[in-house]
Every structure is written in C-alpha cells, then in structure tokens.
Design a protein around this nucleic acid. Structure first.
Lengths: 111, 111
DNA sequence: TCTCATACCTTGGCGCGCGAGGTATAGTCC
DNA sequence: GGACTATACCTCGCGCGCCAAGGTATGAGA
C-alpha cells in the first residue's frame, strides 16, 4: 500500500492533530479548544472534521486511544504512535516545502 | 450568491494563479513552467488542475483571456481583472492567517 | 426544569485536485 | 518519410476529505 501523500494542500487536520498528539495525550473536545486558542481561531476544526479524522488516523495506526472516566464523564484520550511521529515529520517537511513555495510566489515581483 | 470562501486550505491553485496573473499576462503552458521554477518544484500544477482552474476563474469574472497567434501556434493569454485582484487580496490575507496558525502549532511546545 | 457546557458521534453532499488520456502543430535528426 | 520531442490546448471520471447539520447523553447551576 503506497500510503498516498496528501495532495498539494489539505491535510492540515492530519498535520496539526499529529503535532498536538505527538507531545501529549488529549481528548477530542480538548483538541478543539486547543486548536482554536493556539491558532487564534484560524484553525478551528469542526466536530464533523475532528472526530472522523481521529478515527481514521487511529485506523491507520498513527494514533492510539484509551478511554478514561473523569468526573463521571467518558473521555477518549488520543496519542501519536511512533509510526504517527514519523508520519508527522514527513508531513511537516511537505508543509514547509509547499508553504515556502507559496511565499516565494506571493512575495516576489514577477515582471 | 455568497461567493463561498475556500475551505480551510486548498485553493492554493486559485491563489497562485491570481497572484501571477495580477502582474502580467501569461498563457497556460507558460504558467506551468513559471510555477515549477518559482516554487522550486513544490507547486507544480498538472494540466488537469491548471486548465480547468483557468476556465473556472474566467467564468467567475476573476480572469479575462484573449487568444494570440505566435509563430503559428495559438496561445490563450490570461490576466486578472480588477475583481480578480480584489479576490487575490482576500485570499492572501486568508493564507497568511491560516499559515501563521499552522506555524504557531508546529513551532511551539505545548506541554 | 431548563439551559449551558462538556463530550462523544454519524450522515450526506460536494468541491476540487489529480491522473490519464486526447488533439494538433513545429522543429529536429536520421 | 518516419520518429521523436517540445509546445500548446483540452476533458473526463475517480475519490479523498472537508463541512454543515443533526443526534445522544451527563453534570452543574439558576
């Protein structure tokens, strides 16, 4: 299975989720709050993006989850696997490459 | 018609095309070469992206085209309209916002 | 009891990037 | 003349993945 690269762009959810979860365990609702805060609203993933993304990443072995009971509520904590961390490195490199490319085109005079 | 914003990401083709064509007239084949060169291969739009995108942008009134005969070949030159330029400004601002958001998340320690 | 915050989830639509494939002319090399 | 490359345009269909909308359930405070 060739593990297709995400196209040109989009794949931001995958990138940022792996980034957050490579550092510490978090649960869905928490992630949503953190993203909004950290990115100054720019990267708020709706729940219709967030949860399916988490499930898909787990199914691909990039995340691992465990449920925890906290104050009578069930939370599902996710965390990046080693495979997920390697994937994160690749995606980060892709992002930089692509982002630099856009900046070069936006920034320069081309006449 | 609310003229929907492109989602989270993706819309890079629209952004870079408008950027290039806001400055000077170019034709398809030329654009493809320029993008590869300027972005160091990172942003090479295949023809299956490029031409449909140009047509769509023209249909929306963001580009204007005129055919020219050069050395026995027909080239179709495109150029951004004023409306296209205004759109470019909006998209550029969106890109910065979103790009900064990603950088903030990639760059920081979150523990 | 009502509402708000917390916490999870699915479904359907559809935009759009992309690979693959198609047409045609001009020039070059043998 | 035939083959090949570069130039120059185009379309079609697949499918990924974003997103809005809607659904369930618990705990806390008014």
């Amino acid at each position: 299975m060739p593990e297709r690269e995400p196209t040109l762009m989009s794949g931001i959810p995958e990138l940022v989720l792996l980034r957050l979860l490579a550092e510490r365990e978090m649960y869905g609702y928490d992630i949503a709050r953190a993203l909004k805060l950290l990115s100054d609203e720019a990267l708020s993933l709706g729940e219709g993006v967030l949860y399916p993304a988490l499930h898909a990443l787990e199914a691909r072995g990039l995340l691992r989850s465990r449920p925890r009971q906290v104050e009578g509520r069930t939370r599902i904590y996710y965390q990046a696997t080693p495979k997920g961390c390697r994937r994160l490195e690749r995606l980060t490199a892709n992002w930089r490459r692509m982002s630099d490319g856009v900046e070069r085109i936006l920034g320069a005079r081309h006449d």
